[in-house]
Design a protein around this nucleic acid. Structure first.
Lengths: 210, 210, 210, 210
DNA sequence: TATGAATGAGGTTTCATTCAT
DNA sequence: AATGAATGAAACCTCATTCAT
């Protein structure tokens, strides 16, 4: 029985996923043919189907892949003491991710995934869970900040997390569409936005009164 | 003379566009077959091709349609005196648009269009021009606000506009994916974000010192 | 009842036939769409179908048209006394027809008709009858020539007629394919061919012996 | 290793070409649907497109095929010493080809190709090159004959070749249209025609005088 | 009579997937 | 395990013809 080693098996899998990523990035899921992926992977049709049951399977595997990578991204941003500083750290991590030229393909496929999530339940689950991770992280930070009196208490932690995530989603779109997206300037503005959530002296006075 | 009246002609066009919108919203551009659109429109294959040269033409027509509608949306938000109030007005208009249940299909198709924009130049042009409209509007408001000393001068007007637009793009995504997106709460937070751009007393002091 | 005059009716018919001729000449019968003919004729779809029942009907009408024109062509060549001179006259008439720049379209459509004759009985009948006319004419001339002792008696009149007709068919093909077909030189050679059918002194001696 | 053997591959190709030949012979290029060819070949749609990129490709492959076969035909007729005998040999070869019942389909497709050559450049090139082969052969023979004083010098070798080729083209047409085409009698007449190009005693006297 | 919008069967081609080797 | 030839449903689009006006 010509069973290959687990390592080789995993290598082949990655080889196929990389080919798929490149193709999907260039043409989208539905304009990419299996033949394109097969050619780019250097394997055969049959081989690809040994590792993935179908094209949808491949799409979902990439969605999961992204899911896993973002989990790591988030973990990197954890562990700082000051909640506000934690938010800034998260921003820096995502800014980094947004700028990485190697990640361009992944960002583009991500956008295709956002559209695909509208009609493919598995993909949607993966995407939604993917954003639930940073959301929970942000919520935790904000709630701690509110508890410590550092962040305004009249806005929901959940809403803040959704706004911050939305900003990054929009940045991905705008960056992938055009070349003139100034990441640094936009990031600086995000910093301002976060600082805007800080408790001001006015808030304190108001609170005292209440 | 059976030459159809202009009104009837335009009605038929809308009839087809609506069918296409519904289909594209449900299945995306590439999973929707012309047969689906034909069936839903109640017309025949040939009739559809009498009004649109190809499926791509249909996609582009919808992109243009969206473009045109957003232009109206923006114009609605213009004309207020106070720049900050102008931004809030704009937010209200888009919040309205985001909440409108009739617009669900259009929002979903919009997302598919964002993905399509990555590989279809015509669609990308339409999308990019579509966001250039509100961007220019926001930039104008912010610059006026900065000139009047109402808005912080240390952040770029362009970056602010991109952040606000990104927020809305992210909101569209999050709203279309899940049912638990709290539009009101998020909008309130956007209000806070905008207020965060206001000049603070601290800013003034700093400026004086400089 | 808005019945139009016979003359107007005939004019319209010709208008359509001319449009069809131009289209068929350029693109062949099956690559030409009714829409092309309609556009070129300046009439409407409905109008064309008032004059011709179908596209095939149009093709057949053009075949018949050609049939009729060739009948005239042949009649022109009749009536000379000397049979050999009659053949030369016929050659001159066809040479003329082959050279006429206005007839280019008709020659091209003729070729398309030859192919169509293989699968359309009506067209084949028309084509075959069309060549039967000059064939009968040539056969009559040759038989008279043979009777008068001017033309060799050991070759069939029918075969001679088929050879002469074949020569013209081939000329039409070669002329329509390329620009370097030298009509004058080829015609001169046909003259030689015809003279080759003349009885020689050798023939006469042989005959005397028999 | 399921990579098909070269022989099997070539067999399949021929299988498809034969099916196409039969269909095109019966219905012409444009009335034949790919479905007809697919059905007749016994393969599937996809398989046919594995061997030929498009219907046009199939048409051109048949044109090239014919080109190649005629080249062989011509080579067979070469090599005789006496130029006049060479012409007669050529006539015999073509007479053979014209009579072969297996070649009926090929002759019919050939006619369709003549029409197609009017609007398809690739086909025209193939057709024109196809007749250039025997033309060059005939020209060479005739020029040798003229040099040796066996053939009249007052007619162009090129014109003679065109006449002989035209005769065969016409024969193909007439044979494919009707059942009553007497190949033997017509061929005998061609022999007479060729002999008519021989130098006569009259020619010699005239030449002497000059 | 005349119009041209509408029909819908049928055209060519693609492509995710399978399976004999 | 691996190959790639083969499948056939389904994709997009065209076009000869009809018919309400």
């Amino acid at each position: 029985m010509p069973k290959i080693s687990d390592k080789k098996r995993e290598d082949r899998r990655q080889q196929i996923l990389e080919a798929a990523l490149a193709c999907f990035s260039a043409d989208g899921f539905h304009q990419t043919g299996m033949a394109d992926i097969v050619k780019r992977s250097g394997l055969s049709h049959g081989a690809v189907y040994l590792y993935f049951q179908s094209k949808d399977d491949l799409i979902e595997a990439l969605a999961d892949d992204r899911h896993r990578r973002e989990a790591i991204l988030n973990s990197v941003a954890q562990g700082s003491g000051d909640p506000i500083e934690g938010l800034h750290a998260l921003v820096r991590v995502y800014a980094q991710w947004l700028t990485d030229p190697m990640g361009e393909a992944r960002r583009r496929v991500g956008i295709h995934g956002w559209a695909e999530a509208l009609r493919n339940r598995r993909v949607r689950t993966s995407v939604v869970e993917g954003i639930d991770l940073p959301r929970a992280l942000i919520v935790a930070l904000v709630e701690r900040g509110q508890h410590d009196g550092l962040i305004k208490r009249d806005i929901g932690a959940d809403a803040i997390s959704r706004v911050l995530i939305a900003i990054f989603q929009g940045f991905v779109l705008q960056k992938c569409w055009g070349e003139d997206f100034d990441v640094a300037a936009c990031m600086a503005t995000v910093t301002t936005v976060i600082n805007g959530f800080r408790t001001t002296t006015a808030d304190m006075k108001r609170r005292t009164r209440t």
